[in-house]
């Protein structure tokens, strides 16, 4: 309780300081709008932002589900085949290195301007951390577990289902958490490549009108969505994983 009180006080204090600085120093709104202006903007456009938020959330969730599913499936393939490991992992690293903003226009040409390019970029963002963490979880097998299974001629599948899969779950959750935060970025980049709805689209419109408070308002709504989605994964992790099995995040 005390910790959360301190956090709240820090946030409130920070907002007051921000408001005061903007007002006292007469910072122009196009550089940095005051928190009150952002709040007013959210209030004024709450119905527009709500629709945008719905579209963006939809893109994030669908793209994330796609990316996480592919990431997990690839991780399983990689742990079963050394050959695939040699192919998939360098390719995954390569897709991670390529700046998404640079390839996004190509996605528009390949996938059109509908939902597809947004899902493609969002999924591409989410795959890597999920893949990396799942592989880490699946290959981290205690030497003695392996010996125990070898000593009774256990099958590859038994090792996978009785050891590797359950052992990977903390890593999977760590990967899902990072993947979700990146999926949020992916959806916005996707919308910047052309969209009729969504918070990323709204940010572009607002920016073209030098409507900086609406840019910040969209960002704030986006952050809230990201936090909630992250929180949902953390909650599921809380309910299914005992505390002593948490691992730190890779990605």
């Amino acid at each position: 309780m005390k910790g959360s009180a301190v956090t709240t006080a820090a946030i409130v204090g920070g907002l007051i300081l921000w408001e005061a600085l903007v007002r006292l120093l007469h910072v122009p709104a196009y550089l940095l709008p005051a928190p009150s202006a952002i709040a007013l903007s959210i209030w004024t456009f709450h119905h527009v932002l709500a629709i945008d938020a719905w579209y963006t959330t939809y893109e994030i969730l669908l793209g994330f589900a796609l990316g996480a599913g592919i990431g997990f499936a690839l991780a399983v393939l990689v742990t079963f085949s050394r050959v695939l490991d040699r192919i998939v992992m360098p390719a995954a690293v390569l897709t991670q290195i390529v700046p998404k903003l640079a390839v996004a226009p190509l996605f528009v040409v390949w996938f059109g301007t509908g939902l597809a390019p947004k899902l493609a970029i969002t999924a591409l963002m989410a795959i890597f951390p999920v893949l990396l963490n799942c592989v880490a979880g699946l290959v981290t097998v205690d030497r003695r577990w392996r010996e125990l299974f070898d000593s009774v001629c256990a099958s590859r599948w038994q090792l996978f289902f009785k050891i590797q899969l359950p052992n990977s779950s903390p890593y999977v959750f760590a990967g899902l958490k990072v993947g979700m935060t990146l999926a949020v970025v992916g959806a916005i980049v996707g919308e910047w490549m052309g969209a009729d709805h969504g918070l990323g689209n709204e940010m572009l419109i607002a920016n073209s009108q030098l409507h900086t408070d609406l840019v910040f308002a969209s960002l704030l709504v986006l952050s809230a969505i990201g936090l909630v989605l992250f929180g949902i994964i953390a909650l599921i992790e809380d309910m299914t994983l005992p505390k002593y099995r948490r691992v730190s995040v890779v990605g």
Partner: peptide, 15 residues
Amino acid sequence: RLCGLVFQEPALLPW
């Protein structure tokens, strides 16, 4: 499957 193994650390499955 004639041999049962017991290790120094029991290496139980935590889950």
